[in-house]
Amino acid sequence: MNKKRGICAATLATLCLALVTPVFAQSGDPLAVGRKMLVEDNPGELWIDQGKALFYEKRGPRKVSLEQCDFGMGPGKLEGAAARLPRYFADTDRVEDLETRLLTCMTRLQGFDRDQLIKTAISAPASKGSDIEALALYITSRSNGVRVNVSLSHQKEYDMYKAGEYLFYRRSGQTDFGCVQCHGEAGKRIRLQDLIHMTSKAGAQEVSSTWPAYRGSHYVVRTMQWRLNDCVWQMRLPDLKYATDYSIALTTFLNRQGNDAVIQVPGFKR
């Protein structure tokens, strides 16, 4: 359905990349250029600048930037902040993941309407993406090279972690699925789709260090919230709301299991 638009967007992205990466153009061998771009260039990079611009722009009814937003390291301090999420925030008295924290700041600081933000948070395939997707990627990219370090020192963080673990194993619905049915063993596939083995350290580390990611088949950057929605849909559960404790708990569990992985975003997914 969206194939055609998708291909256009992909071509555009490729063109843009070709423009901003003249280094490769000099190598003379067009195939080598293509190959190199596949390995080294991730179209998702384009979203980082978009996110950065959104972060510093004075926006929303209150016309302020997100520079006063505290992602856990102090207002506006982004270096390494995403590596420690989810975490407890005293100002909301709850554990928040990246996307929830963004919502908090965009509503409290900038005055955006929460429901409106949520409505557009997950973009259509082959679109230019949502503000939240771009912001989430930009903020996480400021932790590139930093090791994931989710701490459970606050009681609410412990509680969240344990709830996430419980939910990972919780089976329900007409397929009897919990997360562990698809992500509990190595070398497993649903059809041809490789399933990450998340009860292993390496698998959890892959999860904790590669999101947000560019989704090749959608031509947009996707966040963890989108990923959870998609898995829950396959499980035949109802529509998962955006930024609820259910997602935060699972993300706390997975990221904590994935501690010590070196963050490198955008990840690149099928």
């Binding site: 009681q155 412990y158 419980y166 939910l167 109802p238 404790d245």
Partner: peptide, 25 residues
């Protein structure tokens, strides 16, 4: 900084509440 794990029943209660708040349906 030495929070303790909640016991199983408490975890269960918290997590089950999360499930029923998380979906619109």
């Amino acid at each position: 900084g030495c929070a303790t794990y909640p016991d199983q029943a408490t975890t269960r209660q918290m997590a089950e509440k999360m499930v029923f708040e998380a979906f619109s349906a």
